[in-house]
Amino acid sequence: MRLHKDERGNVILEFALVFPIFIALVLGTINFAILLNNHIVAASAARDAGRTAAVTGRLADALSKGQKILEAAGLGQGKGDVRVSGLGSRNERVTATVTYRTPVFAPGIAAFLGGKAMDNEITLEQQSSYYVEYRNRTEPDRTRPVCVGCSCSGECW
Rank of each mutant, 00 (worst) to 15 (best):
P140M: 01
V41W: 00
Q67I: 08
G66F: 02
S44P: 09
L36I: 03
Y131P: 07
I34M: 12
A62P: 01
Q67V: 10
S151V: 07
Y100T: 06
Q127I: 14
N91Q: 15
A33C: 12
L27D: 09
Q77A: 14
M1K: 10
L124I: 08
V98H: 03
N10I: 15
G115E: 03
A110G: 02
V104N: 09
W157A: 08
D6H: 12
G28K: 00
K79C: 00
G108K: 14
V26W: 14
N91K: 14
R58V: 09
E133W: 13
K5L: 15
L17N: 13
A60Y: 05
K79M: 04
D119S: 13
T29V: 13
T143D: 10
P20S: 12
I69F: 05
G154Q: 09
A111V: 02
F19R: 00
G88H: 10
A72L: 13
G50N: 02
H39T: 11
A46H: 02
L124M: 12
I12D: 03
K79F: 04
K68E: 15
V82F: 04
Q127V: 11
V84F: 12
V146K: 08
L25Y: 01
G9F: 07
A54G: 14
S151H: 15
A60K: 11
S128W: 00
A54W: 04
W157R: 13
A110F: 01
K116Y: 10
Y131W: 06
G50H: 03
I12P: 00
P145I: 04
R137E: 07
A72S: 11
V146Q: 09
V55L: 12
V146N: 06
E155M: 08
G28P: 02
G76E: 06
L63M: 05
I69K: 03
G78S: 14
T102W: 02
V94P: 03
D119N: 14
R101K: 15
L35Y: 07
G78W: 12
Y100P: 01
C152M: 06
P107R: 07
A24V: 10
Q127T: 14
G76C: 13
P145K: 02
C152K: 12
V41N: 00
S89H: 00
R101C: 06
F112V: 08
G108W: 06
L3V: 13
E121G: 08
H4D: 14
R90A: 14
R93E: 12
I69E: 04
E139S: 05
G74K: 01
H4N: 15
A42E: 03
C150T: 03
I122G: 02
V94D: 00
D81R: 07
F32V: 10
N120R: 15
R2H: 13
L63K: 07
S44R: 05
A111G: 05
N38T: 07
V55K: 03
R137G: 07
A45L: 07
A49L: 03
G114V: 05
E139F: 05
S153T: 05
A111S: 09
T99G: 03
V148I: 11
G28S: 04
N136K: 11
L17Q: 13
D119R: 08
R93T: 14
T56W: 06
